[in-house]
Design a protein around this nucleic acid. Structure first.
Lengths: 343, 343
DNA sequence: GAAACTTAGGCAATCGGTTTCCAGCAGGCT
DNA sequence: AGCCTGCTGGAAACCGATTGCCTAAGTTTC
């Protein structure tokens, strides 16, 4: 087994097996032509010494490091984590290791990390971060492939993987229609936020397809429970009846749920509720548990990693790739007792 | 600037500056004795080619990779992230890069990652993960220093950095006493969970110091809002009056807050509330915002990283290091109007 | 004017593996 | 018996950078 002290080298193995280093290398890699007996002797020696080939030495003549860099532009947060996990998963399967870099929305740090990664000769780079707008490309003409995950590059030719928010919002509305709701309101984040805009527009478009519109014009605010509670007051003040609220985030939805309870309206009997993000802490703690749109961030991470691997192997897939959202149905949109779902 | 294509090597730089590679190396590292003019010529050439020294080549003869591995034993979660950020921060300052490995509570994966990291000749390893018990050492006799963060190694001689949960619980109780509460209840997670036990015992011990005890014996359940709500019913059913609840987590605290509201008890006027974790999503969304014990996970990550750096530099600090918790006071423990805080 | 000394910069070994080329030896064939 | 072929395994170049040693100048000194 491995002993503490200097890790053993292939020379140690060769010496122990009484062969040259070249032969030892061939034995360990299954290349060259050696007698099975010799091969075995080398393998045994390697096992006895706990030999692990030095990755740096390998990288040196192979020209590949089997390493990728992952830069999160904003600080590592709730959205980056699942992406990170997904990517790490897909890359680990390809025997690649991940360098984690947290750029914290600081261009200086980003530049520093980029240079570090290139110095380490990573085979590729994944850029991720909270998504509000497409971001400027990390730097022009990198010597290695770059894939953007969740966030997208402003340069259309760069490879980005983003959630299909349009599809997700449409699914949410479709589901509400399917459970018989017609007077649907929408409460979401700040109007200047890309996701808020896109989701609102997509939801409305889906309603239009059925000849409907929001019961009340979309309410833009912030991504907080607080705002969700406030929004309920605004909805009630509008005087318009509504039987469902599609929310731009689970946090908002939870606030809405609280607000509705406070005035004695029942979910889902009086008002059905759909959130966005499927953030389990929120969606499951909500009473009743919240139906929500899941962007499958882990899937996005995996896809991004696989696109990166493909690019590293010389098959780049430039352009913006959208990844489907899925709807996770829970009790907050259960059909009220007397109301049959639409056929 | 860097051109896409093969990254330039020191030979390229040397050729462009019309010197030998050895001289180029000396010029770039400020070693040897060279004419300032020559030095400058090399620097210019390097800049023009966007030269970045190959880290693998450097690692090869320096014997150090300026790289550490970070293994999260459970899946990367809410607790690992701040630790990760703190460690990454401290290590980045030391020009080290971090390999991220997600072992998902799977010993096979853990073993695989460990071997990978050793193959990459990392200078050290940080092991982290959700904390329920001390864990078995990652493997005996590693050739590189290992530091455990948050989680701790069962081997006392290993270097671990853990939150001072005892001190944290004591601070929570002390604060409640300071704002005039005397009938304190405790609602926490599962009894078999190490943190639940430790916090409960420490809180009780602190009460004993003042000649008090829990108003109601500690309630063990699970780490969920749901349980917090249930616990309120149990507290009320006990028939014992209480003017404060110290909760084992912010999620539980939020459940308790909800439960109290539901029966018309006011926070903090009737009952003061303290949580644990200071998980901002929970603590701030709670109404009113929640006073909570902060384990300073980011600080733990930083300390662990610095201990690792010290160990790498030949100054190991074996043993279990506790890191202080701090109490973040918010409105849930504001002194009720008519009640002056204890002097 | 020559010896001693300083200085600038080249040469080559080194780190740990991989890979190509080649030598030596055994066996088969004519 | 001699030649050819095939199988083994060794020697050495190479990847990119660092560093110690050494030499060829130029400078100082007697």
């Amino acid at each position: 087994m491995a002993k503490p002290g200097r890790p053993s080298t292939i020379s140690d193995v060769a010496a122990l097996a009484s062969v040259s280093v070249g032969t030892a290398s061939k034995a360990l890699n299954g290349s060259g032509s050696l007698r099975p007996e010799t091969r075995q002797r080398v393998m045994d020696a390697a096992a006895r010494l706990g030999f692990r080939p030095n990755a740096a030495a390998r990288a040196l003549n192979e020209g590949r490091t089997y390493t990728v860099g992952m830069i999160t532009t904003d600080s590592i947060g709730r959205f980056s984590i699942p992406i990170l996990i997904g990517a790490e998963d897909a890359l680990g399967a390809g025997r690649m290791s991940v360098f984690l870099c947290d750029a914290r929305d600081d261009p200086i740090r980003e530049e520093y990390y980029l240079r570090t990664l290139l110095g380490r000769r990573v085979d590729g780079i994944i850029v991720t971060g909270r998504r509000s707008q497409a971001r400027p490309p990390i730097a022009a003409d990198q010597p290695v492939p770059v894939v953007y995950a969740f966030i997208s590059s402003a340069d259309e030719r760069d490879c980005s993987v983003v959630p299909d928010e349009v599809g997700g919002a449409a699914k949410a509305v479709e589901h509400l229609l399917a459970v018989g709701r017609r007077r649907i309101a929408h409460v979401t984040g700040p109007e200047h936020h890309h996701s808020a805009q896109v989701r609102a527009a997509a939801a409305r478009a889906r309603l239009t397809d059925d000849g409907l519109d929001f019961a009340v014009p979309a309410l833009f605010g912030e991504w907080s429970e607080q705002w969700g509670r406030q929004a309920v007051s605004l909805l009630l003040a509008s005087g318009t009846a509504f039987d469902a609220v599609f929310c731009g985030s689970d946090q908002i939805a939870r606030g809405v749920a609280d607000g509705l309870h406070a005035v004695g309206m029942r979910v889902p009997d009086d008002v059905a509720l759909v959130g966005f993000d499927n953030w389990s802490v929120m969606a499951l703690a909500c009473r009743p548990p919240l139906t929500s749109v899941d962007m499958d961030l882990e899937g996005i991470g995996r896809v991004a990693a696989n696109l990166l691997l493909a690019a590293i192997n010389g098959e780049p897939a430039p352009g913006r790739h959208t990844h489907p959202c899925r709807l996770v149905v829970r009790e907050s949109t259960a059909a009220p007792p007397g109301l049959a779902p639409r056929p």
